[in-house]
């Protein structure tokens, strides 16, 4: 039973500094399986850095991140703490999927090719199996007809949906979404958000960094407000948006609305 009680993601007193600027000042956060958590906060509050630490794209200075009970990024032996090898980091990264603000699709591969690369090289699936998984996921994000299009032949919203399919096709335990609509034209935002919403409804575990307050309110089970490298307040969306306790959150929400 313990397995069900333990949160999927446990971030414990995470500290991270860039030179002399401390961007994360002891963050504690837990995400349970099938939970959708949104992180909001002004830019520079450390929310994107937090997400990048979870995906091991950034190193962190102290504290630890447990994913499904496994400490990720570092091996701690005695009082020494060492970054894991490239191979071990790669394996741990494949347990989480990440979708980026700027899509980051591989321009030399088709939509299907983008999705198949990880399936073929990381999960070592045969080509036809990878292809059918890619097609299934392209269907899920509404792009069945675009499998053989290159990224440059797709709109921003379509590219981002391919990127979502690429992350999810790897069957990650946790999906990290980093301001995925910030680089999109306003009229393309909705199609991407609808895609994410359907994933949430189907039970994917999502950790979302977003500036779309309405979306965060709609889709999340819990909303986390970050302020200056710390979690200032968290709770169910109705409470965070309807009844903010800290003056900073109230102020942030006022400025986000205007």
């Amino acid at each position: 039973m313990e397995l069900h009680v333990r949160p999927l993601l446990q971030i414990q007193t995470l500290h991270k500094r860039f030179h002399d600027v401390e961007v994360l000042k002891g963050v504690n956060l837990e995400v349970r399986e099938r939970e959708v958590v949104s992180i909001i906060g002004s830019s520079g509050s450390g929310k994107t850095t937090l997400l990048r630490c979870v995906n091991l794209l950034e190193e962190f200075d102290s504290g630890q991140i447990l994913l499904d009970g496994e400490s990720i990024g570092y091996r701690i032996g005695g009082d020494r703490r060492r970054r894991l090898s490239d191979r071990a980091l790669s394996r741990q990264r494949s347990m989480t999927g990440m979708v980026f603000q700027s899509f980051n699709l591989f321009p030399h591969l088709t939509a299907a090719g983008n999705i198949m690369l990880g399936l073929r090289k990381v999960r070592r699936l045969p080509k036809d199996e990878a292809r059918s998984i890619a097609e299934k996921w392209l269907g899920r994000v509404g792009l069945s007809q675009r499998a053989d299009h290159y990224p440059s032949q797709l709109s921003g919203g379509q590219q981002q949906r391919v990127a979502i399919a690429r992350a999810l096709a790897m069957n990650p335990k946790l999906v990290l979404l980093d301001e995925i609509t910030s680089a999109l034209d306003p009229e393309l935002v909705q199609e991407v958000l609808l895609t994410v919403k359907s994933l949430a409804e189907e039970g994917s575990t999502l950790l979302i960094v977003t500036h779309e307050m309405r979306f965060a309110r709609d889709v999340s089970h819990r909303v986390v407000f970050m302020e200056q490298g710390q979690i200032a307040e968290q709770g169910p969306p109705a409470e965070i948006f309807g009844n903010p306790k800290s003056p900073r959150l109230a102020e942030f929400l006022r400025s986000a609305r205007s």
Binding site: L57, D86, R87, R93, F100, F106, H108, L117, V122, R166
Partner: peptide, 25 residues
């Protein structure tokens, strides 16, 4: 740099990133 990050995030090792993502481009 987003290319390397995206490749890392799907779990490719560095030699794989070089072979399948960076060098082809």
């Amino acid at each position: 740099p987003g290319q390397t990050e995206a490749a890392r995030s799907i779990g490719l090792t560095f030699p794989q990133i070089l072979t399948y993502v960076l060098l082809p481009q």
